[in-house]
Design a protein around this nucleic acid. Structure first.
Length: 418
DNA sequence: CATCCACTGGAATACCGGGTTC
DNA sequence: GAACCCGGTATTCCAGTGGATG
């Protein structure tokens, strides 16, 4: 072996921009103990929660706001302050339970999370499937009773839960307070969607929403402050051009004032700088980071798609290659999709299902689709690719299973494959 | 204003993981 | 431990619906 004198890892040890300071300050899950431009909100939330420190049930709250406006950060921060406040006190019993409804969006899962959150350390976990719902509910109720304190259930992305499975769990959770006096439950909901309350039964709505808070998007200068603060945590403030930081803030402000995005961009800029030759983060680094971030998102979403969604996408990109403009109708490309899945040896889905997949892909922003009526000649959805077909195919073909479609070429006349 | 094609919402079915019963 | 119950998810089946054009 040549170069045996060199260590295998030598080429990967690039200069580190972050010498001292916390690298994770730029990671998505980081909860800072300073919240620039959200101090008031944190105070307000603390005030709402504060009765729990005197063993009273706090009001149920819903916090509204677009992604990346600090909802989760504020809540996490207040949660950690609550934990600190009760650490040495035996006279208050508070349990904080986090449920991310983006992940668990069904009644069983939510009840399970609450039940598990209330388990004593020595108890066995509840089964994650199998039990009848009412039995699970009875168990949770019993746990709340025996805990006999304040249970604060934080439902992040509560709108997703309600849209997917209705408000029955919320009703059940709220009902606990009516069924028992030992142990109180209060709910702290976090929602991206201002209108999700429309899906609620009026009875649930009035009980769930005792307090509301709305967080507005950050503007560019606020995002700038946040970035500055985070770069201090990370200990890289000196390595960033001020104009680069401003650019980063401005770019993120254009997109709904999403601070998370700004931080993501900054993190990638740091990584790029560490791999590259530049010593400082400049404007160009930020633009490059932005490009990389967008590309990563596409790669990530495409490569994690379920098999049939990928096949549908593949069919669309083939058609994109054949037809200039890349627009095709449902019937046309459904045929192609059938041929492709046939060739793969996997059964094809119904047109009904494919129509839904088209909808999902559209929501992900990968394609554009709209229904068009041609009067006398019927109605159909037209589909077009949002990214270059070469790029999409590239990502798709890197999938093990899809790789066998490598040599599939579209032919102009018949849309035949092979 | 009829007509045509397929869009679309909802009910029905299949399957899965896992508990429960006998 | 076979047979059944339970909730969740993916998909199919079916019938009602939409809407511009000729």
């Amino acid at each position: 072996m040549e170069n045996s004198s060199k260590n295998l890892f030598e080429k990967f040890t690039y200069s580190s921009l972050i010498v001292k300071g916390q690298r994770q300050a730029l990671e998505p899950g980081f909860v800072p103990d300073r919240l620039p431009h959200r101090e008031k909100e944190a105070d307000q939330l603390a005030e709402i929660i504060s009765p729990s420190l005197k063993n009273f049930k706090p009001s149920n709250v819903i916090i509204f706001g677009k992604p990346g406006v600090g909802k989760t950060s504020v809540v996490k921060y207040v949660e950690s302050e609550v934990s600190k406040a009760i650490q040495s006190r035996l006279d208050v019993k508070i349990k904080l339970i986090d449920v991310n409804c983006g992940v668990v969006d069904n009644p069983y899962g939510v009840l399970l999370a609450v039940g598990d959150g209330l388990l004593e350390t020595w108890e066995e976990k509840l089964p994650f499937t199998g039990w009848p719902l009412d039995k699970l509910y009875a168990t949770v109720l019993e746990k709340v009773r025996s805990f006999a304190g304040i249970v604060i259930i934080v439902l992040d992305e509560i709108d997703k839960l309600v849209k997917k499975s209705g408000d029955s769990v919320l009703y059940q959770l709220l009902r606990i307070n009516e069924v028992t006096n030992e142990g109180r439950v209060s709910i702290l909901g976090i929602s991206n969607d201002l209108r999700f309350t429309e899906y609620l039964d009026p009875r649930v709505k009035s009980r769930l929403i005792e307090e509301t808070m709305v967080y507005n998007p950050y503007n560019a200068s606020q995002i700038y402050d946040i970035l500055r603060d985070r770069s201090l945590y990370a200990g890289i403030a000196d390595s960033i051009d001020d104009s680069a930081m401003k650019t980063c803030a401005a770019l993120a402000a254009q997109e709904h004032g999403d601070a998370r995005r700004a931080i993501d961009m900054l993190r990638i800029a740091v990584e790029l700088t560490e791999k590259g030759s530049e010593k400082r983060i400049v404007d160009d680094t930020i633009y490059e980071a932005k490009k990389k971030l967008e590309k990563d998102v596409v790669v990530e979403t495409v490569s994690t798609l379920p098999l049939h969604s990928k096949l549908v996408l593949f069919a669309i990109s083939l058609i994109d290659e054949i037809k200039s403009g890349g627009i095709s109708t449902m019937g046309e490309f459904y045929d192609l999709y059938e041929k492709i899945s046939d060739r793969m040896g996997v059964g094809s889905l119904t047109q009904r299902r494919v129509a839904d997949i088209i909808g999902e892909l559209t929501n992900l922003g990968l394609i554009d689709s709209k229904v068009q009526s041609f009067g006398r000649y019927g109605r159909t959805t037209t589909v077009s690719l949002n990214y270059s077909s070469a790029k999409i195919k590239d990502i798709l073909l890197s999938d093990e299973i899809l790789a066998q479609l490598k040599d599939v070429k579209p032919t102009q006349k018949s849309l035949l494959v092979s």
